[in-house]
């Protein structure tokens, strides 16, 4: 079995990675400043990138969650439900993460007993349960029409629209950086090593007295909380929350982004998410009725010809130069 996805084929020096990250940050800020509507797209991309970071953790253990967008939906609906009573964005963000993390713990206790396809399918099933409930409990959720989020406050202030867009963008960028560093540190720690052990030699891990389930559970809860943060950011950006967020195709997109970006670095998810959102909006603008096909084709090309994802391409170039 080749290990192209979850372990980088070529190591990039930490300095190089940091430089790339800084360049990336400068690039998104510049793009958001130069093209106003891109600010919106990039905020969503950064948010999704945070969720994909969570997927990255699970991928390191060789597990694919095909239902991860349920945590995104939980975060988003936390904002939708609580905003009328508690419009403070700076409180809603940690709350969304905490509630999603809590769900992650409960669901995690159950799903970490399973591996591979069963792990993926169970997550899928649970996300579909959530999707169906969000869609069905009309009196509570307004069904497929979703809930509009309005009147958010930031640190007690209600900025005008352009400022609010910049604030959300800044929050997303800051959180992306924070979680990127966190995941990077986590993967380098013994816990992260143990995670990789689940993928390669799980039984050996247990011989060493490490509980694989506990290792996976802690990663699962972290990834759920990151999904929750991503969801709150998405809700604050689009300011409209629908059950579609929890549909299985949305989860598929997150995994798509993970592979597109490449799982070799914490930068991968953000590369992937930015590329994904840009391809999506430009494909949708150019050929409004065949954008799915274009995305699908991009995904196929990446898997067949650059299985390390965008990060893999970058790392390959950088490595060659050295």
């Amino acid at each position: 079995m080749s290990t192209t996805v979850t372990a980088p084929a070529r190591r990039v020096a930490p300095i190089g990675e940091a430089l790339l990250a800084l360049l990336g940050i400068a690039a998104v800020i510049l793009a958001a400043w130069a093209v106003p509507w891109l600010k919106f797209v990039l905020t969503v991309a950064l948010a999704k990138g945070i969720a994909v970071l969570g997927i990255l953790l699970l991928l390191r253990a060789g597990q694919v969650s095909f239902g991860h967008s349920m945590f995104l939906a939980i975060g988003a609906y936390t904002v939708a439900f609580l905003a009328p009573a508690l419009p403070e964005a700076l409180l809603l963000l940690p709350l969304g993460a905490a509630i999603a993390g809590l769900f992650g713990l409960v669901i995690g206790l159950f799903v970490v007993r399973y591996r591979d396809i069963f792990f993926g399918m169970l997550n899928l099933a649970l996300s579909m349960v959530l999707y169906s409930l969000l869609e069905k409990l009309y009196d509570l959720t307004k069904g497929t029409d979703g809930i509009r989020v309005s009147g958010l406050r930031f640190a007690g202030m209600t900025p005008d629209l352009p400022t609010q867009e910049w604030v959300t963008f800044g929050l997303a960028l800051g959180l992306a950086l924070l979680f990127g560093l966190l995941v990077r540190a986590y993967l380098g720690s013994p816990m992260g090593q143990a995670l990789a052990g689940i993928k390669t030699r799980e039984t050996r891990l247990e011989f060493m007295g490490v509980s694989a389930r506990r290792v996976l559970l802690s990663a699962y809860v972290m990834s759920a909380a990151m999904g929750g943060i991503a969801g709150t950011l998405v809700a604050m950006t689009s300011r409209h929350v629908t059950p579609q967020l929890a549909y299985w195709t949305s989860s598929g997109e997150l995994v798509f982004i993970a592979i597109l970006g490449g799982a070799g670095s914490a930068l991968g998810p953000f590369l992937g998410a930015t590329a994904f959102e840009l391809v999506r909006v430009y494909a949708a603008a150019a050929v409004a009725d065949a954008w799915q096909m274009i995305l699908g084709a991009v995904l196929l090309l990446v898997i067949l010809f650059a299985p390390g994802g965008l990060w893999g391409i970058l790392a390959g170039r950088l490595g060659r130069r050295r």
């Binding site: 694919v64 598929g252 995994v255």
Partner: peptide, 26 residues
């Protein structure tokens, strides 16, 4: 082309195919 690849890639190849075929039907 992907039998010796990781499961996640196999899954995604069929997901990509799904996306393409959705539009083909239309």
């Amino acid at each position: 082309r992907i039998y010796d690849q990781e499961q996640v890639l196999q899954l995604l190849v069929t997901f990509a195919l799904f996306m393409i075929l959705e539009d083909v039907q239309k």
